[in-house]
Amino acid sequence: MTSQILIAGFGGQGILFSGKLLAYKALSEGKELSWLPSYGPEMRGGTASCSVTISDESVGSPIIDNPDVLIVMNLPSLDKYEKTVKKGGVIFVDSTLIARKVEREDVKAFYIPATKMAQDMGTPNLANIVLLGKVLKECPEIGMNGMEEALKKVVSKHPEMYERNLKAVEAGYNY
């Protein structure tokens, strides 16, 4: 089983962080993985993307041409990547930031007002994590397994962030 997940949005939305969390989650589950960011001057403000491959066997190319799962946090990313998703794949849309619907009918789509939810929770910069919570719910092959351990590792320097992130994951998961 191999899952190819592409996360895309603006720099500063925590796109790479979401991917990192997924990567650590896979590591703590003992799975094979690769995490590949876009890099360069788009780090702040431009478009950012992150490709995460999680697999039971060793990962071939870390580059994802056709994702199983697409997570988008801005309209340009949906416009750019919608057509690349595998038939039968899943698209997660932050509906606070993206007004339009997914046009393809051969993929599943979920709309989560992640940015609004994060704002209401008093953690406006955790919209990416809310969105990720929903992904864990709707993609059983990814699932919740290993998530808490991964969170602990990723925010180890700021333990107060652990609770907030966990809450954001749960909010998305239960949406």
Binding site: L27, S34, L36, V59
Partner: peptide, 10 residues
């Protein structure tokens, strides 16, 4: 190359 430098793997 840039991919090898930037990517994370176990």
């Amino acid at each position: 190359d840039g991919t090898m430098g930037q990517m994370m793997e176990p």
